[in-house]
Structure formats: structure tokens, C-alpha cells
């Protein structure tokens, strides 16, 4: 209890700073902090029960809820319309993340009950959370670039390219911008940053080398999930995003300006 009190006291530093400098975000800061506390406390109780029952159906359903929220967040953070994208992107994320998490649990953690709550929800959450930004960039930039550089896309079509041949150029570019941040993070990992998962494990009493093993595995799993979910979401969404003549449907974007 005392530790939480001291933790709250530390909040005074950003709070007083923001208030004193009149940054105009004091209210946002308080609301966000409160939201974080309430959400985490609720999820804490919730997870207690989930871990206690450890029923595969409940675990599976909760993981689906987590994936669905990630999908909503990815689409909301892009300029794309929810109703056109939610189903194909959801399907891509389910395929990508289930594959990676189950692979992880079976081959790396080596547990026999691969739908175990502790592993599926914890590992799944790490992978989903960490690939979120890349997914926003990957899918959002793909369509943004297509709209901005439509002339180039048309030019490729006029050379005789199929839709997929012409889109390859755009897909490649969005992969590069989506993966670059993760690649940069990996290069400094351990020196600049000790990732949350490792910190948690070490505080929980693990030997650093064990923590490192999982950290390496999780980073690779994040990359795998990112590449899979971006590829699948592009592949699944381009089927609905174009007219039969190959032109991009304008109604898939939320903003109408060109």
C-alpha cells in the first residue's frame, strides 16, 4: 500500500510540471492516468478469474476480444472506413496472431496445453501491443500512398501490369516503413532499453538469461506477426478496395479530399 502511495506521489512531478507550464493538457493527463488505473485494476481482477478457471473456450474468446480491439485501433488510426475494412483485417489478424502465438506456446515455451490462459493472453497481448504501431503504418500507408501516387499506379497499369503487379511497388514501400521502427528497436535492445517483458521477469525472480531467451523469442514473434498481419490485410482488403477496372474506390476513405 505504501509503495502505491509513493507511486502516486511521483505523479506529482508530471502533473505539477504540466500545470505550471500551462501546457493545457492537465485535464487530459489526469483523465488518462485515471483511465489507466481503472482499466488495469479491472483487467487485474478479470485476469485473476481467467487464470483461475483456465478454460480454453474463455481463453480463446478473450484473445479474440483482444485481437478485435487491436483491429479497431488500427483502422481508427488510419484514414480508412471501418465498415469496408473491419472484416478482412479482423480475419488477417486472427490468422496471423493465432498462428504466431500457438507456434510460440508449442515450440518455444513448450507447453502441452497451448491455449493456456497465462501464456496465450500474456504472450498474445505482448505481440498484439507491440505490432500495433507497425500495423497502423503498414496498412494505413499502403492506401495513403496509393491515393497520393495514383498516377504512378495508373502508369503501371497502362504498361500492362495486373492489379497485383502494380500494387507490389506500394506494398513493398509500406512494409519498409512499417518494419523500420522495430528493426531500429532491435538494434539497440539491451543497451538503450530493457524491454518491459524482461524487466517483469527479472523483478519476478527469473535469471536474466532466461528472461533474455524469452525476450529474443518475443521480438522475433512480433516481427513474424507484423509481417503476416500486414501481408494478409493488404491481400484481403485489395479484393474489395478496387473497381473491376482496377481503379481505387474513393469511398473506402474517411476523408474525401484528394
Amino acid at each position: 500500500m505504501f509503495s502505491m502511495f509513493m507511486c502516486g506521489l511521483m505523479l506529482l512531478i508530471p502533473l505539477l510540471g504540466v500545470w505550471h507550464m500551462k501546457l493545457g493538457i492537465t485535464k487530459n493527463l489526469i483523465v488518462s492516468t485515471l483511465r489507466m488505473v481503472v482499466q488495469l485494476v479491472l483487467i487485474g481482477f478479470f485476469l485473476e478469474y481467467i487464470f483461475k478457471y483456465n478454460n480454453w473456450l474463455i481463453n480463446l474468446s478473450w484473445f479474440l476480444v483482444m485481437i478485435a480491439s487491436a483491429v479497431l485501433s488500427v483502422i481508427k488510426n488510419s484514414d480508412l472506413k471501418l465498415k469496408h475494412f473491419v472484416l478482412p483485417v479482423l480475419l488477417s489478424f486472427i490468422l496471423a496472431n493465432f498462428f504466431v502465438v500457438l507456434y510460440f506456446n508449442y515450440f518455444i515455451v513448450n507447453i502441452s496445453f497451448i491455449l493456456d490462459a497465462k501464456y496465450m493472453i500474456a504472450i498474445g497481448g505482448m505481440i498484439l501491443g507491440n505490432s500495433l504501431r507497425s500495423n497502423v503504418i503498414g496498412l494505413g500507408d499502403f492506401y495513403k500512398a496509393l491515393r497520393k501516387d495514383e498516377q504512378l499506379y495508373f502508369y503501371k497499369l497502362s504498361l500492362g501490369a495486373t492489379k497485383y503487379e502494380a500494387l507490389l511497388l506500394f506494398a513493398k514501400k509500406s512494409f519498409v516503413s512499417a518494419l523500420n521502427p522495430t528493426i531500429a528497436t532491435m538494434a539497440t535492445m539491451g543497451i538503450v532499453s530493457l524491454p518491459g517483458m524482461m524487466t517483469g521477469q527479472i523483478l519476478g525472480g527469473s535469471v536474466p538469461l532466461v528472461a533474455i531467451k524469452y525476450q529474443i523469442a518475443i521480438m522475433i514473434a512480433i516481427l513474424a506477426s507484423t509481417v503476416l498481419s500486414i501481408s494478409l490485410s493488404i491481400l484481403f482488403t485489395v479484393r474489395y478496395s478496387f473497381h473491376k477496372t482496377g481503379t481505387l474506390k474513393k469511398e473506402i476513405f474517411r476523408s474525401s479530399n484528394n
Binding site: L152, Y155, K156, L157, S158, G160, L169, K244, T245, G246
Partner: peptide, 22 residues
């Protein structure tokens, strides 16, 4: 039509004024 236009694109060479060629 929506389909024959793809065939036409293989027969025509188009040089656009917009020089965004890659």
C-alpha cells in the same frame, strides 16, 4: 467493358504528362 479494358492496356503504350514513372 471492365474486363476488356485490361486487354486494351496491353495493346496501348501511354506516355503521361505526369512524369511520376517510378
Amino acid at each position: 467493358t471492365d474486363t476488356s479494358v485490361w486487354e486494351l492496356r496491353k495493346k496501348v503504350a501511354y506516355v503521361s504528362q505526369d512524369l511520376n514513372i517510378g
